[in-house]
Amino acid sequence: MSHHLTQAVRDCIAACNDCATECGNCFSHMVGNESPNDCPACCIECAAICRLCADALARNSPFAKEICELCAKVCAWCAEQCAAHDMDHCQRCAEACRRCADACRAMA
């Protein structure tokens, strides 16, 4: 069966992949450093769900909407955690998380 990816799905996949990349970068800068909140642990959770979400959307998974819903929730949490830090990598991560959360909410 042929599956055509709409532009909205492609945009969501791109947002998920960008978010996972920024989360990985943030984690690599933060690991081993003291943090008063869940950064960098949130980055690992967020990157994992973003990769899963991108894959689910690409293969037209019957669970894509539910995965998008969870991805949006995790991204919103990670954005909140990372935005609390002044470092550029945390701010870039938070922004990517917000964009991904918005894109995933639109898919859910």
Rank of each mutant, 00 (worst) to 15 (best):
A72C: 13
Q91C: 07
C53M: 02
C78I: 10
R99H: 09
Q81D: 13
F63K: 13
A20N: 04
M87A: 13
W77R: 14
A101F: 11
A108F: 00
L5T: 07
C26F: 09
K73E: 15
A101S: 15
G24V: 14
M30Q: 03
D88G: 04
D86V: 11
N33F: 11
C78F: 10
M30K: 01
R10P: 02
A101P: 04
Q81A: 14
C53H: 05
R99I: 01
A41P: 10
C82A: 07
M1L: 02
H4T: 15
I13P: 05
C26I: 02
E95K: 15
R105Q: 13
C93K: 01
C46D: 14
C12G: 08
V9P: 01
E80V: 01
C16A: 08
C46Q: 11
R98N: 12
C104I: 06
D88H: 14
M30H: 00
P36W: 07
N60H: 11
T6L: 07
C19P: 00
A108L: 14
C42A: 07
A14Y: 04
N33L: 13
L70C: 14
C43W: 06
D55P: 13
C53S: 06
C82I: 01
A14S: 08
E22Y: 07
A79P: 04
C50D: 04
I49V: 14
A106V: 04
W77I: 06
D11H: 00
C12N: 01
A56W: 03
C68Q: 03
H29D: 13
E66D: 10
C39S: 12
N17K: 09
R99F: 09
R10K: 15
N33P: 00
A8H: 02
V31G: 01
A101L: 00
A14H: 08
R59S: 13
C104E: 09
C75F: 00
C75L: 10
H3Y: 15
C16P: 09
H4S: 06
C46Y: 01
D86T: 07
C82V: 07
R98D: 08
M87I: 05
A15W: 09
A64G: 07
H4I: 12
C97H: 05
A108G: 15
D18I: 05
D55R: 03
W77Q: 12
V31A: 05
D102G: 15
F63H: 09
N60S: 14
C93Q: 02
C12E: 01
H3I: 07
A54D: 00
